[in-house]
């Protein structure tokens, strides 16, 4: 649990962060979103005190971060930055082991932890442990950067534009990987990004910042449905909000009991009403994917498949309703 109260940072006459407050509950991801210079990075850096606050409080699990010894505080906080900042003279394994070593873990424990983390980030320990950062691709480096940050299971993970320097395909893959890891590990995360899509994908709560203040703090869905006038609307973008709302929900949420119209014939699935072969949806697919498939196939209903058998169906009307204005 992170509680930030009336946090302020002045650089001379300029106020970079202007008395902001928020909370991040255990296991949740908060995204700080805004344009360059809005104070989001400064806010993040005040939490691990790379920047000293001018006033205000940061409480981590009930303890005042400003009273804790600096190095002890930082050892308990994972930190990922856009430039990654891997140590170029150390191997991947040594990089990941940085914080456990500083904390004085035993060798076997460190080795086991490094292997576990490399596997978690889909880097074969046998192949990658001994490599140097310069031998890795950008995506691999960023995976190592995140693995290094969470190596000692910190109470809090701070991420500053973690996927910003990657090409779009690698970025999306890493976002998906991180989301999957987060679903299992339930870390308490503050993510700084200027990429609204990234915030929608990864965050439980989004705080929109401008000129050092939080303009709106809300769940992704609330932000899409009820964005405040002005900057928040511009940033969120209203043109495709229905599709964005759909991407926040899964097929599982609106699926109905299957009717008898689906027939499995060997490998293919037949819609008895039209006599055509159809591809089913997965229960974990987003409603955005479902909508796209419904439009493409020009059908009213699609079956939901799980392990080769039909477990339900999704109706177009239900999808439209999920993405539409609430009465």
């Amino acid at each position: 649990m992170i509680e930030v109260r009336e946090l302020t940072k002045r650089f001379g006459d300029r106020i970079a962060v202007d008395g902001i407050s928020f909370e991040v509950r255990d296991g949740c991801v908060l995204a700080l979103v805004g344009t360059s210079g809005c104070g989001k990075s400064t806010t993040l850096r005040m939490i691990n005190r790379l920047v000293d606050p001018s006033s205000g409080e940061v409480m981590i699990d009930g303890r005042n971060a400003l009273d804790m010894p600096l190095e002890q505080l930082r050892l308990g906080i994972g930190y990922v930055i856009q430039g990654i900042g891997l140590f170029p003279h150390w191997t991947v394994a040594r990089n990941v082991a940085t914080v456990p070593r500083l904390m004085g873990w035993e060798r076997e424990r460190i080795e086991a932890r490094v292997s576990e983390l490399l596997e978690l980030f889909q880097l074969d320990p046998g192949e990658f442990a001994g490599k140097y950062p310069s031998e890795l691709s950008g995506g691999q480096q960023q995976r190592v950067g995140v693995a290094r940050a969470i190596a000692a299971e910190p109470a809090v993970l701070l991420m500053d534009e973690p996927f910003g320097a990657l090409d779009p395909i690698t970025r999306q893959r890493l976002q998906a990987e991180f989301a999957a890891i987060q679903r299992r590990r339930r870390m308490t995360v503050i993510l700084v990004t200027h990429d609204m899509d990234e915030a929608f994908k990864l965050a439980d709560t989004i705080a929109v910042m401008d000129e050092g203040r939080i303009l709106q703090i809300a769940s992704p869905e609330e932000l899409l449905r009820e964005p405040r006038q002005g900057f928040v609307r511009t940033l969120v973008g209203l043109d495709d909000r229905a599709l964005r709302i759909l991407s926040l929900h899964t097929v599982d949420e609106i699926r109905r009991e299957p009717t008898g119209r689906w027939e499995v014939r060997g490998e293919t699935l037949i819609d008895r009403e039209s006599g055509r072969a159809v591809n089913g949806l997965g229960a974990g697919d987003t409603l955005r994917e479902a909508a796209s498939r419904i439009i493409w196939e020009a059908v009213e209903t699609l079956p939901v498949l799980e392990a080769g058998s039909v477990v339900g169906e999704v109706r177009a009307d239900d999808v439209w309703a999920a993405g539409g204005r609430r009465a």
Binding site: N48, L50, L70, E71, Q72, L73, R74, L75, G76, I77, Y79, I81, Q82, G83, I84, G85, L86, F87, P88, H89, T98, V99, L102, G145, R148, A149, L158
Partner: peptide, 22 residues
């Protein structure tokens, strides 16, 4: 590189450790 130093500080290395090890 500044990012390397920032990462070292952010991870909780002491000034001495940053000097000697990085």
């Amino acid at each position: 590189p500044a990012t390397t130093l920032e990462a070292a500080r952010g991870m909780g290395m002491s000034k001495r450790a940053i000097l000697m090890q990085v």
